[in-house]
Amino acid sequence: MSKTPDFLAQGHDPQDPNPWLASYLDNSTPLPDHVKQAWLVDSSSGSRQYLLPFLRPLARAMIILIQIVKTFIPRRWQQSALLHRILVWGLKRFVSPEANWLILRHFHLGAQILAFIGRNSPAPIETSPLEPLCIEDLRDHLFVKHDINLYNFVIRLNQALRDAGLEMHAPERLDFSMLREPPLALEGMPRGKTNVLDLQSAIELFTPLYQLLLTDNDFWRAANSLQLDETIGIYAAQLLRAPEHLILVNNKHPLVPLSTLRAGHRLVLHGLSSEMLHSLLMEKKREQEEADQEAAP
């Protein structure tokens, strides 16, 4: 078992309140305690505090440099297999257990959220879930497939709605059956002496590599997919009849593409938004199950 985080073990000192403890105890946003704890352990790490401020400007400078270099490379040149081998190698050897766990969770949460929307839509569609059980599973081009899945989902969903002459609205009863806690154990993540890199630093480092080894089209598609957070948030809000939860979405507007320079930071916001939306859906599922139990004879 993981040790108790410092911000929980030390308790509260009114003369020197711990900002991480305040964030952990705050329940204004939907996030399970075990996820919030892992997120804050990663965010309060020495890597995040001391390394990220140096890595971020270097990574963004690399994005600009690579963009210049790629003007001399054939447009269709790409090395997706090499990219994913390097990512898997880096995750297993250098990234913290909490960050690896959150990355693997993200694939499961995204698959469940899309399945929830697809099944409860007035024009239901099937989805193509990506649910890696270990870091090695990511080798099968899963980072690229994740972005492609999202665009294909939006296109197929709206084609189905248009063909049926319908608009997104809440059904009489929501189907939450696809929602569950991902079968991933934090204790099973790599814990070597070099597994210290926090989530944000890892993403900032991997983003230029992503740009270098994929085509410009693939990289821009991946970066712009982050702005579909608002789109997915709107679909979920329409099904839940809860538009107020859109305030949790930070990546917007989907019709205004942003520069790729801040893709790393926006990817972190994308991951957090997914965690919060999944937590909200799980809460609604529990409420429905409790109501069913009370109504049972």
Rank of each mutant, 00 (worst) to 15 (best):
S2G: 02
P14K: 00
P14Q: 00
D16I: 12
P19M: 04
P30N: 13
A38F: 01
A38G: 12
V41N: 15
S43M: 09
S45D: 01
Y50A: 13
P57G: 08
R60P: 10
A61K: 09
A61F: 07
I63D: 14
L65R: 14
I68C: 11
I68F: 02
V69G: 15
V69W: 04
T71A: 08
P74F: 09
L82V: 01
H84A: 00
F94D: 15
V95D: 12
W101V: 06
W101Y: 14
L104R: 10
L109V: 12
A111T: 15
Q112H: 01
Q112K: 06
Q112G: 05
P122M: 01
P122T: 05
I125F: 07
E126H: 09
E126T: 03
S128G: 09
L138C: 07
K145A: 10
D147C: 15
L150P: 01
I155L: 09
R156I: 03
L157I: 01
N158Y: 04
N158Q: 09
A160V: 02
L161S: 11
L161E: 02
R162T: 04
H169Q: 15
L174V: 00
L179T: 03
R180V: 06
L186K: 00
G188W: 00
V196T: 08
I203F: 14
I203E: 11
E204Q: 06
L214C: 08
R221H: 09
A222E: 02
A223R: 03
N224D: 08
L226P: 14
T231I: 07
T231N: 03
Q238Y: 06
L240S: 06
L248V: 12
N251A: 03
S259L: 11
S259Y: 10
R262S: 13
H270N: 06
G271D: 09
S273R: 06
L280R: 12
L280V: 07
M282Q: 08
R286C: 05
A291P: 03
E294R: 04
A296S: 13
P297C: 02
